[in-house]
Design a protein around this nucleic acid. Structure first.
Lengths: 154, 154
DNA sequence: CTAACTGCAAAGACTTTGCTTATCA
DNA sequence: TGATAAGCAAAGTCTTTGCAGTTAG
């Protein structure tokens, strides 16, 4: 789905629930629908502030809570990062390599992923438990090259 | 690997690094090596207190930090739970179904998992990026049956 | 108009840090 | 016996909440 359709769809969902579409919310949606990164609340806040200097972090969190409740955004954490990151579903799900020592995160390119995880199979697993799948994540934990080198000292 | 071998291995690693093996740490290790759940720091703390009533949460966190640094425990978060959970690797990796609305988590039985994710393939992906795989996680996000029913109101 | 939203500040929840006393090796 | 760990309390982060003023519909 392209960015504009996605935006329209969400805006429509807001209307249906009689939630209001404010400029601040619009700015957040645009960032979520165009960014291919997993941004934290603070990062989203900084980007919105570029357009709306008076925006507050609390508003960002409140809007994210609404979007989560609507199932339009996914909140995830990596390693032992203290903050959550938000995924607007415009990213093709792909595995992350996460270093358990230094928390370095590397994205795995998706070419191989398609064959690795059979999407239809995953969906079927979810449905068997009565869940309606929206997204999934697949993360691999280990030691990055630098931390492996350090490990040799033991 | 069985529980005792696992324990021995970790104790040996402590010795090699000249870290000390205290009763509190031993208690934590035993819980991590025998529990098949993903326990939070608070839950670990409660279980240790059954044996050592004066133990503090800070000590639990400090020991978990040591174990993380050694790559002997995995810290993960689910949904928008505020607290981290710790996995001592005695659990066969299995997918979780997580409801994005109410955060309900269901474990997927592992029979199907083996065929779903080809472990050797995953390891190879990690190695191609220079990472040494320790563990992985695979989580499916969606709506649980109850939240789907509620969704129909819109 | 008026119910919903914003933005500030204050409160919460979990985790980390500092410091003194205790203890493993 | 000396460096490391425990336990307490205080400080830090990130996130949520309460409330007065503002605004979308």
């Amino acid at each position: 789905m392209n960015t504009n359709d996605r935006l329209e769809q969400i805006i429509e969902k807001f209307r249906a629930r009689e939630y209001r579409m404010t400029p601040q919310r619009m700015a957040l949606l645009e960032i979520l629908c165009t960014s291919t990164e997993h941004l934290s609340a603070a990062e989203l806040y900084e980007r919105i502030r570029a357009q709306f200097p008076t925006t507050s972090l609390a508003t960002v969190y409140k809007t994210l809570a609404v979007l989560k409740e609507m199932g339009e955004v996914l909140e995830i954490s990596f390693g032992s990062d203290n903050d959550s990151h938000y995924d607007g579903y415009n990213v093709m799900p792909h595995p992350h390599l996460i270093c358990v020592r230094c928390n370095k995160i590397v994205d795995v390119e998706t070419t191989a992923t398609q064959t690795l995880i059979e999407l239809e199979h995953v969906k079927a697993i979810a449905e068997r438990a009565g869940y309606k799948m929206i997204n999934h994540r697949f993360d691999i934990y280990g030691l990055c090259p630098a931390c492996q080198a350090q490990e040799e000292n033991y």
